[in-house]
């Protein structure tokens, strides 16, 4: 019988300081997240320098808590996995250097994980992945459709050409005077409205799986501006609903077309915007009709966490993809396949 693999995951790519222990890449033993949202709220967005400062304050506390909750000592770990990129450079550096120092102190193998690979592998903590698999990664920093034919094989078949979906959500929320982060507020308002302003759907060229959200965002801003010019008051609920409808329709339709074209066995969603209720419902209903298994991890695994990094890191560790003390934070790290 094989020995169980316990991997410590560390994630500091944006505004969450997180550590987690995962068993065999599939079972969460502990999952600790120290969120900084409250600190960034007053600035209306994540301030990189403040994020980095918080990470230094939290990093050893969070790792200690993850080990304590797991009731494990470092010698029982098989490896340390850390988000190597992409993300905010100053924020990444704290996690990477902590991971290096921890791995060095205990003589443990070190694995550098791509943040998006982590988001995708969050699903493996809920159910086993089946290939070919289509993954919709949708968050404040990403909007991508990724095809996987096996573990560690990533092919980006579509991505945003401008803003990430979550970025568009935050910008529209700001024009509606909603607090940061804006996504959940737009989602909530959209559900309170029967009326919806008609905003364009941005499909790009025929057959493209790419996305564009900046045009939609501009339409919303123009609409608000024109209403004000005419002395009319826009109805925030109807604006939120109109914006959300456009995002949800385009994202759902493109995901469905890709799932059909590549005959996938499974579709999974990942990233903070995957927590959006409107999007969740649309995707769930669509793939139910289509008879393709569709999964979204529970909310704490959609947003940034370290369990997902440990989950992806476990597979990399098993494939022997070990880093060394020269690992660096890589803000623009590409999602390369491991195979």
């Amino acid at each position: 019988m094989n020995k169980d693999i316990f991997v410590l995951g560390i994630e500091t790519s944006c505004d969450e300081t997180a550590a987690s222990v995962v068993k065999n890449g599939t079972e969460i033993i502990s999952n600790v997240v120290a969120s900084q949202i409250e600190s960034h709220k007053r600035f209306g967005g994540v301030v990189p320098e403040i994020a980095s400062r918080h990470h230094v304050e939290q990093i050893t506390i969070v790792i200690e808590e993850a080990l304590q909750q797991a009731d494990l000592t470092p010698v029982q770990l098989s490896a340390v996995a850390v988000t190597e990129g992409p993300g905010l450079v100053g924020a990444l550096l704290v996690g990477v250097n902590a991971a290096k120092a921890f791995a060095f102190a205990h003589g443990l193998p070190l694995v550098g994980v791509h943040h998006i690979a982590g988001h995708i592998y969050a699903n493996r903590l809920e159910q086993e992945m089946e290939f070919p698999l289509l993954s919709l990664v949708i968050s404040g920093g990403h909007t991508e459709l990724i095809l996987m034919k096996e573990h560690g094989d990533f092919k980006v078949i579509g991505e945003t050409r401008d803003d990430a979906a979550g970025e568009a959500y935050d910008k529209v929320a700001r024009t509606l005077n909603l607090p940061y982060p804006g996504g959940p507020h737009i989602d909530r308002l959209a559900h309170q409205s029967i009326e919806a302003v008609d905003f364009p759907r941005i499909w790009l060229e025929e057959g493209s799986y790419d996305f564009s959200f900046s045009g939609l965002k501009s339409s919303v801003l123009n609409y608000m501006h024109n209403m004000k010019q005419r002395g009319e008051t826009p109805v925030p609920e109807a604006v939120a609903a109109g914006f959300q409808n456009s995002v949800v329709e385009v994202v759902t339709e493109k995901t469905l077309r890709a799932a059909r074209e590549y005959c996938v066995k499974q579709v999974i969603a990942a990233g903070g915007v995957a927590a959006n209720k409107g999007l969740r419902r649309s995707l769930t209903e669509t793939f139910e009709k289509e008879n393709i298994p569709f999964f979204i991890p529970p909310l704490p695994l959609c947003t940034d966490n370290a369990a997902m990094i440990a989950a992806a890191g476990t597979v990399m560790f098993e494939k022997g993809l070990i880093g060394d003390m020269a690992m660096n934070g890589r803000p623009g790290m590409p999602l390369n396949s491991w195979i």
Binding site: E49, V56, T60, V94, A98, A101, A105
Partner: peptide, 19 residues
């Protein structure tokens, strides 16, 4: 340098706590 100080201190904190 903010980043420089953070790197040294992160390493120092993690080593001291780990060991």
């Amino acid at each position: 340098s903010y980043t420089g100080v953070r790197i040294g201190l992160t390493i120092a904190k993690t080593l001291a706590w780990s060991l």
